[in-house]
C-alpha cells in the first residue's frame, strides 16, 4: 500500500514539474500564443521536464547496467570516474574562456564529453591488466581516477577567476535548466538508444548477472560483450553528463529501488528502472524549484538529500 502511495506521489511530483518555478504559469494562457505563460511553459518548462525525465532514465539505466555487468552494487558512472572526467573537461573549457556554441551545444559540453570519454578509455586501458572479474578492481580504478580528476579540478579552481570558479562549481552540482529543445532532444535520443540497446542485449545481461563463469560456459564471449556495452553506454552517458553536469545518486539508488519494489530478475527490470529513474529525477527537479526556497536548489543537492538517507535505509534493511 505504502509502495503504491509513494509511487503515486512520485508521479504527481514529476508531472507538476512544468507548473513550478519562479514565474507562475497561468493555465488559461498556456495556449495563448505570445503570452508569457505560453512562452515559459513551452520554451522553458516542458523542455526542462523532458530533459530531467530522460536524464533520469539514462542515469538509472547506466547504474543498472554497470551494477549487473560487473556484479557490484556500487557501480555507477560516478564511481567509475566518468562524471569526474566530464567535470574536468568542462572546467578546462571554462578556464580557457571557450564559451561559444557548436551545433546548438556549447563548447563546454563538448569538452565535458571528451573528458567523460577520456576517463572511459583510461579505464578500459587499465582494465586490460586487471585479472579480477568481480568488478572490485575496476571500481577501485574508477575511484582512483576520480581522485585524480578532483585534484586536477582543484588546480583549475586555484588558477581561475571568481566567476569562472562559480561557473565550474555550479556545473559540478548538476543543472537541468535549458532553453528550447536542443539539449532535451540530445538527452532523449541518448537515453532511448541506451534503452533499446539494453533491451536487445537482455538475455546476455541476464547471463552476466548470474556470474561471468556461467555466461562463458553458455557460449557468451564475455570480454567482447562487456567492451561493447561499456563503449555504447559510456558514449551516451558522456553526451548527457556533458549537458547537465554530473547528477549523483540516481544511478546508485534507482536500480536498488526497482529491485526492491518489483522483485523481478534484473533483466526484467530494464523498463521499470528507466521509468522510475525518469520519475525520480523529474520529481527532484520539481522539489528543487519549490517556492519555499528563495532560489533554485542545484538538482545534485536534492538527489543527494533524498538519495543519501534512502540508501542508508536500504542498506540497513539489507536489500
Amino acid at each position: 500500500m505504502i509502495k503504491y502511495f509513494a509511487l503515486g506521489f512520485l508521479v504527481f511530483l514529476s508531472l507538476s514539474s512544468s507548473f513550478v518555478g519562479s514565474v507562475d504559469v497561468d493555465f488559461k494562457e498556456i495556449f495563448v500564443s505570445g503570452s508569457l505563460s505560453s512562452n515559459v511553459f513551452f520554451n522553458l518548462r516542458v523542455p526542462r521536464f523532458i530533459l530531467a525525465f530522460f536524464m533520469g532514465v539514462l542515469l538509472a539505466l547506466s547504474g543498472w547496467l554497470y551494477q549487473g555487468l560487473f556484479r557490484n552494487s556500487l557501480m555507477t558512472p560516478f564511481t567509475l570516474g566518468i562524471s569526474g572526467g566530464a567535470v574536468l573537461g568542462v572546467g578546462i573549457s571554462v578556464v580557457l574562456g571557450l564559451e561559444f556554441a557548436f551545433f546548438g551545444l556549447s563548447v563546454s559540453a563538448l569538452f565535458g564529453f571528451v573528458g567523460a570519454m577520456s576517463s572511459v578509455l583510461l579505464l578500459l586501458y587499465f582494465s586490460r591488466f586487471v585479472k579480477d572479474s568481480t568488478g572490485n578492481s575496476l571500481l577501485l580504478l574508477g575511484i582512483a581516477l576520480s581522485f585524480f580528476f578532483s585534484a586536477s579540478l582543484m588546480v583549475l579552481f586555484s588558477i581561475s577567476t571568481a566567476t569562472q570558479s562559480y561557473s565550474i562549481l555550479r556545473y559540478t552540482m548538476g543543472d537541468l535548466s535549458t532553453i528550447g529543445y536542443n539539449e532535451a532532444i540530445v538527452v532523449t535520443l541518448s537515453s532511448l538508444l541506451l534503452l533499446a540497446f539494453l533491451y536487445l542485449k537482455r538475455y546476455e545481461l541476464a547471463m552476466l548477472s548470474v556470474s561471468e563463469q556461467n555466461a562463458k560456459l553458455k557460449g557468451l564471449d564475455t570480454k567482447k560483450i562487456t567492451l561493447l556495452l561499456l563503449v555504447v553506454s559510456s558514449f551516451v552517458i558522456g553526451v548527457a553528463i556533458s549537458i547537465t553536469g554530473p547528477i549523483g545518486f540516481v544511478g546508485l539508488i534507482i536500480p536498488h529501488m526497482a529491485k526492491k519494489l518489483f522483485k523481478l530478475p534484473s533483466y526484467k527490470l530494464i523498463v521499470p528502472t528507466a521509468l522510475l529513474g525518469g520519475l525520480f529525477l523529474s520529481a527532484c527537479d520539481t522539489l528543487s524549484r519549490l517556492w519555499i526556497f528563495e532560489s533554485e536548489i542545484p538538482i545534485g543537492v536534492v538527489t543527494a538529500f533524498i538519495g543519501g538517507p534512502f540508501f542508508i535505509y536500504l542498506i540497513l534493511k539489507r536489500v
Partner: peptide, 27 residues
C-alpha cells in the same frame, strides 16, 4: 564441453529457475 560447478553462485538472486535453465539454450 561444459562444466557443472558444485555450487550455484549468482549475483542476481531473483532469476527464476526456468530463466536459469533456459540460459543453457543460449548457443
Amino acid at each position: 564441453i561444459t562444466y557443472i560447478p558444485p555450487r550455484l553462485e549468482s549475483f542476481d538472486q531473483n532469476i527464476s529457475c526456468l530463466d536459469f535453465v533456459l540460459m543453457g539454450r543460449y548457443p
